[in-house]
Design a protein around this nucleic acid. Structure first.
Lengths: 230, 230
DNA sequence: GCGGGGCAGCGTGTATGCACGAACGCGCAG
DNA sequence: CTGCGCGTTCGTGCATACACGCTGCCCCGC
């Protein structure tokens, strides 16, 4: 391979700004930084033991990810979750994942299929143990395997970005023990469809998994038609 | 509307970094800056009559859009078009537009439907006149109307970003006069499906319009399955 | 008592200086 | 003649300094 520069992955020694950006992103995704929290450049600089410059780079780097909102000359705050936009993002994410599953059903290599099966099996144990934290982490891996199986790096990029941006608002989603079991069942249906090479079924199953069926989609669309009623 | 901060649009007086970013982006999209061109910070600073700082901000701002690639400690260059990734992006864009068309078919307001129809009609004149430049500009507007009609700002965001990122490589696509006419015909089919409220048909038509039918999709996927043959 | 204008404090936008790291070319050894 | 090691040079990463714009408060006028 002739040395390919990944568009979002500079693997070499991260610069200080990137380190700060990663740290901030993790804090936001994990919910340690609550929406609306002002991100003072000088304060953050002191906190990270650096000057304002890397902090500024970090904030400007985080802005396009949607995790922070920056207003020119007015500073940056942890992104505030506009409920409408949140719904929009869920809808888009469902379709992105559906596309990934469809592609994976067609394009996954035998090794990747085995890997997916293995991951799914490992998650069964976590369900039995009721280990939500482990399942949550494994769930991320599971969906990443789908992206890899789709053999579409760009799709993986935006899907991952969307998923991450929604992460803070899905934190409690798996808390209910029954939801854990159902999630795993849905994964099973997805895996089955993919192994069968049935792209349409895989897409349909994952739409269900995200929790937005065709019906709710249309309902949302219809509701959006008269926003004047708000 | 209770003052919503757009995630990528700071409308107030743009800062110098943003101005430079916009200028660079335009130069790249228009093809005036060719892929691989090194973007020297100091040189750009002199060219824009500012210091390195705003230039740095501009470059870091452009990096996530994919128009430039920056390697830590090694500088930035105008993004190089990896053919495989290009194909991936076309595929994703087709699906994003399909989704937008489907949503638009369901959710467009009567006013928006009239606006779409009007835009389509105006473009007919450009086809007759063979005015490629005008058609290209109107085409962007046409697709933006679709995004607006979908009532999904997030979808519009990433679709616009993808479209812009592909723009430099579609420059000559409409040059053939026949392509102009066919493009307009395809638009007609899309508009018809949308006006009928037929989401599935609208999606299918726009997939055709982007030039990637279900068949080529599967073919690409199949081809991707054996990347070892490269 | 209440609303509007000015003032002060603060934080960001921009400029500049310094130091580390990387790319390039030369000279030397094999 | 070719391959390798080293020094030089360029450019980026980070720190610091300065100035403008914004925000909130206080005071004054009505």
């Amino acid at each position: 391979m002739p040395r390919r520069i990944a568009s979002t992955a500079p693997p070499p020694r991260p610069t200080r700004g990137e380190a700060i950006a990663a740290s901030l992103a993790e804090d936001i995704v994990a919910g340690r930084l609550k929406p609306g929290t002002p991100l003072d450049e000088l304060g953050l600089a002191r906190a990270y033991g650096s000057s304002r410059t890397p902090v500024r780079e970090a904030l400007r780097q985080l802005a396009p990810t949607g995790l922070v909102q920056v207003a020119p000359r007015r500073g940056a705050v942890v992104a505030i979750p506009d409920p409408q936009q949140l719904g929009e993002m869920f809808l888009v994410m469902a379709e992105l994942e559906a596309m990934a599953a469809a592609l994976a059903a067609l394009a996954m290599t035998p090794e990747q299929r085995r890997g997916l099966e293995r991951q799914h099996g490992a998650m069964a144990a976590m369900v039995r143990a009721g280990d939500v934290a482990a399942y949550r982490a494994a769930n991320v891996t599971f969906h990443h395997l789908l992206y890899l199986g789709a053999h579409n790096g760009y799709l993986g990029e935006i899907a991952t970005a969307t998923r991450r941006r929604l992460a803070p608002f899905r934190a409690a989603q798996l808390e209910a023990p029954d939801r854990l079991r159902r999630s795993h069942e849905e994964h099973g249906a997805i895996v089955t469809a993919i192994q069968r090479g049935d792209a349409a079924a895989a897409a349909a199953q994952i739409r269900t998994h995200i929790g937005l069926t065709e019906r709710t989609w249309e309902a949302m669309a219809r509701a959006l038609r008269q926003p004047s009623a708000a």
